[in-house]
Nucleic acid binder design. Structure first.
Lengths: 218, 218
DNA sequence: ATAAAATTTTAGTCTTGTCTAAAAAATAAT
DNA sequence: ATTATTTTTTAGACAAGACTAAAATTTTAT
């Protein structure tokens, strides 16, 4: 069994591990958790003793299979709760994070199994991120950043890279939502901004926005 | 804002306060929370500094209005989650306690308001206990213990005093459930056991059982 | 290749919430 | 009314998880 704090470290390390194949550095973890490197070193030793990660001094860490499975399970809970909040409790997608951050630590396998069933076994959370299965497997969908698309290409909006409230609210305002079809009409050489077609309307979008929107193309 | 632990103390003190009008003793709190008296003294000082209870050395404690409201709010959350678990996630009434004990500490007023609405503003939890409103008021129903009823009296089963899994499972086995009509047919002088009519069938019930079942009579 | 800079670890401290053992106060018993 | 018992508080310690400051190690730059 893991403490609240240990679970937060596991989750952070798991997410950092998705981005690189190297050992995860102490500093990277500290930055992600907004804590000090020395605190991270302490916790790493505890987690290492619990066999959820491999650690050699000054070498960074890597999750073991047990660690990955444990982390994926926390993420599974987080994302299932997000679905619950949006689908059943009328939360908007920019409000769910803090609450899910708390709910993910509730210990009860029956709870999470029944919640999964109650939500009819959703495959992705409100931001388009995949929900790991019970074994911790998550199958990533094939997706690209909108910013990488060329004029003429089209696809379906399936996720966000940045899930800050500010960005999500911006998307709401522009009526950009997951599931909608998007086509790139033109791309501006000067600032890489895009003109896209969505809901039969043209919309101009900055590169910063396009760089945070995932599109599924065929 | 209160810590997990502070909230548990508040809840315990609130419940103990329901039973007596005296100041709540250190020992009573320690027993209820399965902790040591010295730990209770420590925590009492913290809570006193936070203005949720009145404390004079060796005199026991009493919740302030703020303390009562805070405690009632935690109980509100606990009971709403119990309803959720039973009504939506197929938990039985003997399985909900431990999970609700965790869920009650989640901090989000929107969460609890929306949950309340989602459950259609339930008035009582699965054990028949009233759910405090947002202001912390809870209106007790008029009820008596089955053990206090005389032959010929009848009423509706509305709650349990003991909500241990063992007792609740016993009630399930005997098909005794909240909402059912009960009539006392006879009472045995020797051991105060009762013969009751429920579901058009006669059932013999020990005094210990009868002493843990609440009945609403008119 | 060595100095400078950045990263990581260690050592020691702090807070929260718990504990044990002993002291103080209140209550009960003779 | 004094003693015995019970309850409560204090004092000191400990574990978890965080911090600061300093030391150790690695990486980068000249």
């Amino acid at each position: 069994m893991f403490t609240h704090s240990e679970e937060n470290y596991l989750k952070a390390i798991y997410h950092l591990g998705q981005l690189s194949n190297e050992g995860i550095s102490t500093n990277a973890i500290a930055k992600r958790l907004d804590t000090k490197a020395s605190s991270v070193t302490d916790m790493i030793k505890k987690l290492s003793a619990k066999k959820v990660l491999e650690y050699k001094k000054y070498q960074g860490v890597n999750l073991t299979d047990l660690g990955k499975k444990t982390a994926a399970n926390i993420i599974r809970k987080h994302r299932l709760w997000e679905v619950f909040l949006v689908e059943k409790l009328k939360f908007s997608w920019d409000e769910v994070h803090d609450v899910a951050e708390q709910l993910e630590h509730i210990k009860s396998s029956k709870l999470i199994d029944e919640l999964d069933a109650f939500l009819e076994f959703p495959k992705r959370d409100p931001h388009g991120d995949p929900i790991p299965d019970k074994e911790g497997n998550l199958h990533q969908i094939k997706k690209r950043l909108l910013s990488s698309m060329q004029p003429g290409e089209a696809g379906i909006c399936v996720g966000v890279k940045d899930s800050s409230a500010a960005f999500l609210q911006f998307l709401d305002k522009q009526k950009i939502a997951l599931g909608k079809s998007v086509e790139v009409l033109s791309k501006e050489v000067f600032d890489d901004s895009l003109t896209i077609k969505i809901d039969e309307k043209e919309l101009s979008i900055s590169n910063k926005i396009a760089n945070n929107l995932y599109i599924q193309t065929k």
